[in-house]
Design a binder for these strands. Sequence first.
RNA 1: GGAGGGGUUCCCGAGUGGCUAAAGGGAGCAGACUGUAAAUCUGCCGGCUAUCGCCUUCGGUGGUUCGAAUCCACCCCCCUCCA
Length: 407
Amino acid sequence: MSVYEVLEERGFIQQVTHDEEVRELLAKEKITFYIGFDPTADSLHVGHFLGMMVMAHMQRAGHRPICLIGGGTTMVGDPSGKTDMRRMMTREEIDANGERFKKQMQRFLDFAEDRALMLNNADWLLDLNYVEFLREIGVHFSVNRMLTAECYRNRMEKGLTFLEFNYMLMQAYDFLELNRRTGCVMQLGGADQWSNILAGADLIRRKESKPAYGLTFTLLTTSDGRKMGKTEKGALWLDPEKTPPYDFYQYWRNIDDADVANCLALLTFLPMDEVRRLGALAGSEINTAKKTLAYEVTKLIHGEQEADKARQAAEALFGGSDDLDNVPTTVFTPADIVGKRIIDILPATGLVASVGEGRRLIAGGGLYIGDDKVDDQNCVIGEAAVSGGSLMLRKGKKTYHRLVIEK
RNA sequence: GGAGGGGUUCCCGAGUGGCUAAAGGGAGCAGACUGUAAAUCUGCCGGCUAUCGCCUUCGGUGGUUCGAAUCCACCCCCCUCCA
């Protein structure tokens, strides 16, 4: 089975520039391909991870991935899929984010002996000469045609700056540059990148008279079409500092029934037979599939050890095991707690953002100590409560936080 | 540069002098029901507090007024049309 078929079967593929040719190319040759990642935040998120999965599948099949960090393109900002221009970022910010991207990417691909490359388009974009660029690259773009592209069309109402309008040319130029430097012949990207990818492939065909291909993969969406990976605290980050492995695990553990099979196919390497079997489980049986999904994805991103811990914590809290070591915990001294109102220490655990929110939580009957509902907003923690060395707080049905008291 | 229309709480969006911490919807949190799911119904949803108390918020600054998100002046930003 070729990678193309693998990607197809797993539901990655959205659009391809040349279906037959690409199918054959990937089956018969080892190619170099790339995906660009603009470092607009200080961590990758699940959306990026989907791209890394595609790269990993491709690398396993013997193709060579290039992770292109968009140190140059981020200076301009991709308007695709956005209704407003995003904040302009400083060079320092972009570079710092780029470094973090690099670190996180190392774990998903094998970079040894150039089996995968990591490049930064700042290296060729930032020193470009404006007039030369316009004459060499700009001539090949028809404004009329650009304006009909989906990514610009929805911006015609809200407005589009000339800065952003140039993004497509820069990304097209990247592809050309990579083609010249490394023989890269294919660009992959999320479905929103279709126009940018086409522009690059066209540019190469025109300037180099060589074939170039593009392929987009589906965005991670829920069965009802919403973007996946959103949490109460924003995106689902790959950085354990921003999204702790336990929270990450729980996100997938709580996924909609309807999305389980899709996520297993896209975000894990489980064989498709297994994916189909798990996805077909009915009723509460499907929880098995969710556990597998949560464990596998957490393992890929945070490693086996963290995945074990997360699973173990979940088992302790929901499954009845009593090993609470890996449950989210805050450590206090007796002086921090004894005689204090529960409401005043609650924000320090991260369970609520403010005292007021904690108050409302209690008023709504959503806070528990152990299995006892807290009724009194001014409930004070007594000596006796602390004698056991720890307290289990619970917000709602499934958010737990353990207080450990260290003398 | 000219003419017109805008900038409201996380998002969308109502609000044109006191009854406005600000309608409605979405998102989010909690309760019931469940399978750590979905759908549904209910409550909460700026901060601090003893619920009716105080503080901060409606692009910015300065005014008018007993009192302003609402009126005036100037400034900044966005959109549409014209150049």
